[in-house]
Design a protein around this nucleic acid. Sequence first.
DNA 1: ATATTATATGAACAGTTATTCATATTTGCA
DNA 2: TGCAAATATGAATAACTGTTCATATAATAT
Lengths: 113, 113
Amino acid sequence: MYINDKVVEEMTNALKIASDATRIKILSCLLDELDSTKEQSEHLIEKCVNDIALQIGASQSLVSHQLKVLKDGDFIKSRKEGTKIYYSLKDAHVREIISITYEHVLEKFESHD
Amino acid sequence: MYINDKVVEEMTNALKIASDATRIKILSCLLDELDSTKEQSEHLIEKCVNDIALQIGASQSLVSHQLKVLKDGDFIKSRKEGTKIYYSLKDAHVREIISITYEHVLEKFESHD
DNA sequence: ATATTATATGAACAGTTATTCATATTTGCA
DNA sequence: TGCAAATATGAATAACTGTTCATATAATAT
């Protein structure tokens, strides 16, 4: 299967965005359920910057920087309400990439230990 | 959804492995079909180092280095036959990660242009 | 044994990036 | 207007990583 350079580049960018511990933590805390055997909830989880920072144990500045990366990469969207900005996952692909990677890791654990 | 640090670390590692242009090209050329609307073929595609290098237009050394990374990360497996070593995708998760990322990119193109 | 083919490896360099710190911007409210 | 809360930004640094080049290993055939 041949894919052109532009598509490879965009795929690389998308996966680079997902391949960072801080960003995975952010995405995970915006993701309701990782277990794919359970039904994906349609409920949209929204969290503001400070809540995310507290939940994942990172600084406000770091979370803000990484939220920008995730947003530029179309992984999340935002909604303004007063001084707060609520972030949430953008679409199903993001959920799937995280879920499948999660399963891949679990399977690796099983087969190697 | 809370996942522990060890799992986050492994997920990060797995996605780091996938987030490189050379490695995506290698995986793509070991992947029969990217279009998820078509049925995933069960046919295993096997290619040796030099064939891959020629197909993606990279040096033998670079491909060998990256095949090692992909194999250590459980993305591919290998089979020896004489002097040649045949590589192929390891499991369905790898196909899915690549396919979904591909779709994510296509959708991004559509929504932004 | 020697040559050839196929693949792997190690060191080195260049480019990239995650994090921190300090500061700026924006909004709501008294 | 001035203050506080929430978020964003820019610069600097430290750590990481993809690629190249040269060389090594392994297997096969003559």
